[in-house]
Write a protein that binds this DNA or RNA. Structure first.
Length: 609
RNA sequence: CGGGAUGUAGCGCAGCUUGGUAGCGCACUUCGUUCGGGACGAAGGGGCCGCAGGUUCGAAUCCUGUCAUCCCGACCA
């Protein structure tokens, strides 16, 4: 391709709309344009990148025996109602774009395809003899994100590879899951990405085991916690760790175990309380009030006890609340803090916020207009493990010192609700500490089990002649996000440095001065020779000054640059590697052979490294 | 949804406090000089100043509303 014909528009200044390097560079170098919030046009250069990524994905998945297919994006609500996800995905914080057709029938734009594929599988897969099957597609997904951001990182319309596997038993599912794990590692390596696999929360998709693949980058939206020995890595949403030891409360349990009253005027924050009385935060129990909203409209107040020095992990809490309430009230839609304003609106007596203890009685909820009249009481294990502690006395400006479970109130159910923190000791080896890094989630694989197949009655006949639900796995890769993640990981002050395997073009031949016939002729000749050799080559034939063309070549990030300039008359050209900046003078007759050696190796991505 | 910010030419910005009918740099067009790291000079084209009301003789500028975009958050009282 000739640059003069490429519709190339590069920007000198960073567009105001972009914040992170990869987003700025993709805009500046003419790879993308914003059409709306979270909606981007993939310009010809980026489309080549996306196709190269897709080709790698296809090769690796086809290699595992997976079948490529293409499913509809317009999906009937009925399908989602059968799986039980319609309300959760369309109401509240739901992310599914949905609409009505002319007959008034409801439809959704596919944010994911479990429903469609499972219904198809139920229809087509009848015997264990057909299993296992793994189907995948690469297509646009639609998600009405709460907050789209960072260009392609979190778009409302984006390209995803999603795969779904079907099995006769769990062991077979685990095999395919492991095969996909391996395929994913190869895919990211071949794309030239440093990616790590981490344990993950399976979120709204559901199912049991799940693992995310993170491209490590400062601008990542996710926090990864990993042990120094490399044996444990998890998303913070999911991570487990050993909490710091609590400092024992001097004097132990007092006044029959329900504690002594202590005047604590205006000391509603743990920090203020501790500094005023010399307590350690780990000697206190803090109480959080929250409100869970369910699909059926039920509003359930939550009372969560945590050790004062610990932080709540909302994802763990949401999972715990779902497990306890969803069979009765349907999908958990959201959990919000229970505020004084909301309580007043509900017609309740004032609640002593800032001075609450775990013994706060359900009576404070009496007279509630729409809330359930009882708290769902949950506690983190760090709180229930305390022999004696400091907590609010449930009246303003007062705490209790030396309270203990049982005497004060029954200990609530003890769970893991705390957020693991960097510096925490690891479960697998207390000598190891968790270290934090940031990551961009580019892939996620799940063992779904039979959640969807049971809901959608997708069954097969087993060897014994009985019908049972299919075992399922699902596996996603954010193709467009991966492209931007690659830029985030591979750029410098001058622009993008694409890994060769996914670069839009592998080589750019720059004619320094097109007014010079020898340069022009040699440039054209090399361009033709590279094309004939199967190299993806760009020819910068524009009548710009050399400096402009060099700047643009750097910005675009083409891995190799061949400069045809002053030496052209003597048959000499310059070969420059974009990422390293290394340059050498090479006879024009030898440059193709040299390039082929480099490209041969680089096309494999990091696999060869 | 809560908070913050910004909307002026394709991009980046100034002008707004103190109302008088729009400017700079880049990009674009033409000509000349230049020609290996975003050249210089000259001449041009392009804007209902996000939109709608209001105040005023007069609004980019003041007031009200609205829309859009970006950032932070939606977690500990």
């Amino acid at each position: 391709m000739r640059v003069s014909r490429l519709m190339l528009v590069t920007l000198r200044d960073d567009p105001a709309e972009a914040e992170i390097p990869s987003h700025k560079l993709l805009l500046r170098a003419g790879y993308i344009r914003r059409v709306g919030s979270g909606i981007y046009a993939y310009l010809p250069l980026l489309w080549r990148v996306l196709q190269k990524i897709s080709a790698i994905v296809r090769e690796e998945l086809n290699g595992t025996g997976a079948l490529e297919t293409l499913l509809p994006q317009l999906q009937p609500a009925e399908l989602w109602q059968r799986s039980g996800r319609w309300a959760g995905y369309t109401a509240g914080e739901g992310i599914m774009f949905h609409l009505e057709d002319r007959q008034g029938r409801e439809l959704g734009l596919g944010p994911t395809h479990e429903e469609v594929i499972t219904a198809l599988a139920g229809d087509l897969l009848r015997s264990y003899r057909q299993l296992p099957v793994n189907l995948y597609q690469i297509q646009t997904k639609f998600r009405d994100e709460i907050r789209p951001r960072f260009g392609l990182m979190r778009g409302r319309e984006f390209i995803m590879k999603d795969a779904y596997s079907f099995h006769a038993d769990e062991a077979c599912l685990k095999q395919t899951y492991a095969a996909m794990d391996q395929a994913y590692r190869r895919i990211f390596s071949r794309c030239g990405l440093r990616a790590v696999a981490v344990e993950a929360d399976s979120g709204a998709i559901g199912g049991s085991a799940s693992q995310e693949f993170m491209v490590t980058a400062e601008a990542g939206e996710d926090l990864i916690l990993a042990s120094g020995d490399g044996r444990y890595a998890a998303n913070q949403e999911r991570a487990v760790s050993l909490p710091a030891d609590a400092v024992p409360l001097p004097g132990g349990a007092r006044a029959g175990g329900s504690g002594d009253a202590l005047p604590t005027p205006a000391q509603s924050a743990i920090e203020a309380l501790c500094s005023a009385h010399g307590f350690d935060p780990s000697q206190t129990v803090k109480v959080l009030l929250l409100l869970a909203r369910f699909e059926d409209g039920c509003l359930q107040p939550l009372l969560v006890s945590l050790r004062g020095d610990q932080q709540l992990n909302e994802v763990k809490l949401a999972n715990a609340v779902s497990a306890r309430c969803s069979s009765e009230h349907g999908t958990l839609l959201e959990i919000t803090p229970l505020t004084a304003e909301a309580a007043a609106k509900e017609g309740l007596e004032p609640i002593p916020f800032g001075f609450m203890g775990p013994h706060l009685e359900d009576a404070v909820l009496s007279g509630a207009r729409s809330w359930q009249p009882r708290f769902l009481r949950l506690a983190d294990a760090t709180a229930t493990a305390l022999q004696s502690f400091v907590c609010g006395a449930n009246s303003l400006d007062t705490h209790r010192v030396g309270a203990s479970w049982g005497a004060l109130c029954p200990a609530p159910e003890s769970l893991d609700l705390r957020a693991a923190q960097p510096g925490d000791r690891c479960l697998h080896d207390p000598a190891q500490q968790l270290q934090a890094s940031r990551g961009i989630e580019v892939g996620h694989i799940f063992q779904l089990g039979r959640k969807y197949s049971a809901a959608l009655e997708a069954t097969f006949t087993n060897e014994a002649g009985q019908d049972e639900p299919l075992w399922m796995g699902c596996y996603g890769i954010g193709v467009s996000r991966l492209a931007q993640a690659a830029v985030e990981q591979h750029h410098d002050a001058n622009g993008i440095c694409w890994p060769t395997a996914i670069a839009p073009y592998e080589v750019i031949v720059v004619i320094a001065n097109v007014a010079e016939a020898p340069q022009r002729e040699l440039g054209e000749q090399l361009y033709g020779a590279f094309q004939a050799a199967g190299i993806d080559v760009l020819l910068d034939d524009r009548s710009e000054r050399a400096g402009v063309k060099f700047k643009d070549a750097d910005l675009l990030g083409i891995p190799w640059r061949v400069v045809v300039g002053r030496g052209a008359a003597d048959g000499q050209v310059e070969l420059v590697q974009r990422a390293s900046g290394e340059r050498s003078d090479v006879p024009a007759s030898a440059v193709l052979a040299q390039l082929q050696v480099h490209l041969e190796r680089e096309r494999a991505g990091l696999l060869s490294a």
